[in-house]
Design a binder for these strands. Structure first.
Lengths: 146, 146
DNA sequence: ATCATTCTGCAACTTATTTGCAATATTCTC
DNA sequence: GAGAATATTGCAAATAAGTTGCAGAATGAT
């Protein structure tokens, strides 16, 4: 995917495609796991302004470009929303996040749809957050092949 | 449950039953929802030392008296472990936490046991954290009765 | 009672995140 | 395209949560 594409995606989400925003979007597009503000800073280099990056992340979440992944006490991590699923009105995620205890990466498992959870009478579930921890496919195969 | 009981519970978990610790334990025993450090401080009054409370919470988690509930970006919240389920070696929770979007309280739903989650091949789940958000039974009935 | 260990309270520190604001950049209108 | 209105950026400072170090107090063991 090239820069022209990013530009269109941001515009479609009513986000002004400034340089920093395109850079941040590209960082997430190049990553197959969720990233914290800190990690984005490291990738972009320390000469970009951290406050601007914070604001960019917030804007992206607000406009439906990024979503937050649950983290077990760690820093908030963000991952791209699937194209055309989310917008500035609402996010529509029902997938779980998986954190590998070996490589420590958190990824979206889009293919796992959570079936309905048996909740007690009187309770209504609107959304849920699911974080599974364990060993990911890549780390499993590395261990097996040793 | 009286103070003598608390004393025995702490001792059974190899936690020295000091005044502060008994007080903190009592706070959780009196609460039917999870509490953050901040909320514990508010209940105990501002003249108890915040560092001591932090350390007490950590000790309690470590010794199997408290566990952390997932929170959606909020401060870490803690809730009592069921008696005799957890110890200093390990916690054995597989229940979900529920946060009511009306009263904003987070509670343990012990009765909801999560069945196995269908995960992709190659992945192994060791633990999971589940936070459901919605309306709790109490808040539902209040709305209905209006 | 003595001694080693644990716990507490205080101050200072670290880290993450937010706020305020002036300077820039962008978009809109004419 | 100039100028006004609006949005974005970068910097400094503030806030907030949580941690660390340490000296003194409390506790438990002998």
């Amino acid at each position: 995917m090239d820069e022209q594409n990013f530009l269109e995606i941001l515009s479609a989400h009513k986000v002004r495609p400034t340089k920093i925003r395109l850079d941040v979007y590209e960082v997430f597009n190049n990553s197959d796991f969720a990233l914290s503000h800190n990690e984005v800073m490291t990738i972009l280099g320390e000469d970009v302004d951290k406050v601007t990056v914070y604001r960019t992340l917030h804007t992206f979440v607000e406009k439906g470009l990024l979503h937050e992944a649950e983290t077990d006490g760690e820093l908030t991590k963000y991952a791209l929303c699937k194209p055309d699923t989310c917008n500035e009105v609402r996010h529509t995620h029902q997938h779980l996040h998986f954190k590998c205890t070996v490589c420590l990466k958190t990824i979206c498992l889009e293919e796992v749809q959570i079936e309905s959870i048996p909740i007690p009478p009187g309770f209504t579930i609107e959304t849920f957050k699911f974080l599974a921890e364990g060993v990911c496919d890549k780390c499993s195969s590395i261990v097996q092949n040793q």
